[in-house]
Every structure is written in structure tokens, then in C-alpha cells.
Design a binder for these strands. Structure first.
Lengths: 108, 108
DNA sequence: CGAAGATGCAACCAGGAGGTTGCAGTCCGC
DNA sequence: GCGGACTGCAACCTCCTGGTTGCATCTTCG
């Protein structure tokens, strides 16, 4: 709960090809083990593990041990919060664009 | 045009407190010079310059020399493209959540 | 129990990111 | 023309990040 609420942390977590691919993979395939997630990736299992921990630090995924495997899955609430943060920024940008547009209109 | 279209690059560019603050600042204050953007920040002008270049590399801002100052501003088209990319990911997540929800419903 | 499967942990490494400092270059205004 | 204002460039430094390797740990199953 420390850094999870920070937008920059979420963006930073998504700002990596491998992690973005992991998120997409978890979207498509649902909860998966590390070895499953490693298959197809061009990096080591350990690298995948580290990336998962980064995503976990941003609150985007969560891993839970089940037997001898650890199953990783997306976190709905966190994902939604992140999406709303993105939308908020999008709205800010839109507002800025509107202001710029109005400024240009008025200027000519 | 090389790396600009990449979503990870955009996220990475936004995944830094200082740069996020710069974007917000450019939203609020509109086009600004480097010295203006440096005021209030707790880092050097050079650091700000570097961050601006990173944002520029992601296609989010653009700087143009005007007299002895360089004015930096947001790039509408790029901003919109980035927003659409974010929305797309949001939709993917929503779809995943729906699937998960359906799975849970069906499971009980 | 014993071996194979699936992870976790720790040490280590190269490279890049974020920051600073110093100095050169370009413009504006007096 | 000159000094000050505003940047650009480049060298450096430190720390974090992405990756790897080797080994220990814990489960499952025959």
C-alpha cells in the first residue's frame, strides 16, 4: 500500500516491453505459473520472476502459492484504479487541448 | 517515428515523478520555457532538459526555439494516440475482468 | 524414501537513467 | 558593442535495473 497508489509507479511498471507482454499474457491466458509465463519469453525464469515482483510492487498482479507452483494473476481492483488514473490524465490532456484550441481560435 | 509508436516507451516516459510533474505543468501552464519549468522543481535545469528530451523521444512534447528561449509544449496528436493506447489496454483489462467474473459466477 | 519439477534466494555484472557541474554559444536590450 | 539571460553540450558520477548463474528449498508422485 506504500507506493501502489502512485501513478508514476504504475506507469513505470508498464514501461517495459517484457512486463507489458506479461500483463497481456495474463489477460489472455488467465492465472498462470512462472514456468508457463516463461515459455515463449526470451529471458530466464528468474528475469520473469523479477518482472512479476515489479508488477506486484505496482499492485497490478498478485501471486499465491498453490502446491509446488506459484500462480500469478491480475488484480481487478488495482487494474481498475490504474485505468481510472489513465482516464484522468487523458481528461486533463483533453482539457489542455481544448484550452489550446480555444486560444488558437480566439487568436486569429 | 522510430520508437514513438511503442506503448511501452510512452509508459516509461510517464513512469517518472519529475516527468509526470512536467506533463501536468505543461497542461496547466501551457507552453513554457525551460527556466520557467525549472522554477519550483527541485532539480537542476539540465535535469529538466534531459527529462524534456525523454518526453520528446516518446513523442509527448515538442520544443521549438523562439528567440533566445526554447518553448516546450504538449503534442496534441501524440497525446491523443497515447490516450487511445491506454484506453485499448483498459478495454483488454475490462474484458479480462469480465471473463474472470463470468468464470467465478459459473463456478459457484 | 528418492528423484524430478517448480520456485525462491543471493551474488554478481554490464549498461543505462537521473543528476550535477563547468563551459561554450546565441540573443536581447541598453 | 557588451553584459546578462537562456540554452546546448559534454564529461562525470552514482545507483537502479534488467539479466544471468548456481544452489538451496519445498512438493508431488511412484
Amino acid at each position: 500500500m506504500s507506493t501502489e497508489s502512485n501513478a508514476a509507479v504504475v506507469f513505470a511498471a508498464l514501461g517495459d516491453e517484457t512486463r507489458l507482454a506479461l500483463v497481456k499474457r495474463l489477460c489472455d491466458s488467465g492465472p498462470s505459473s512462472i514456468t508457463e509465463l516463461t515459455e515463449g519469453a526470451d529471458v530466464t525464469r528468474q528475469a520473469i520472476t523479477k518482472h512479476l515482483h515489479v508488477l506486484e510492487g505496482a499492485g497490478l498482479v498478485r501471486g499465491s502459492r498453490r502446491g509446488r507452483t506459484t500462480v500469478w494473476e491480475l488484480r481487478p481492483k488495482r487494474l481498475d484504479a490504474a485505468k481510472r488514473a489513465l482516464d484522468a490524465i487523458g481528461r486533463d490532456w483533453d482539457a489542455a487541448l481544448d484550452r489550446l484550441r480555444a486560444f488558437v481560435e480566439e487568436d486569429r
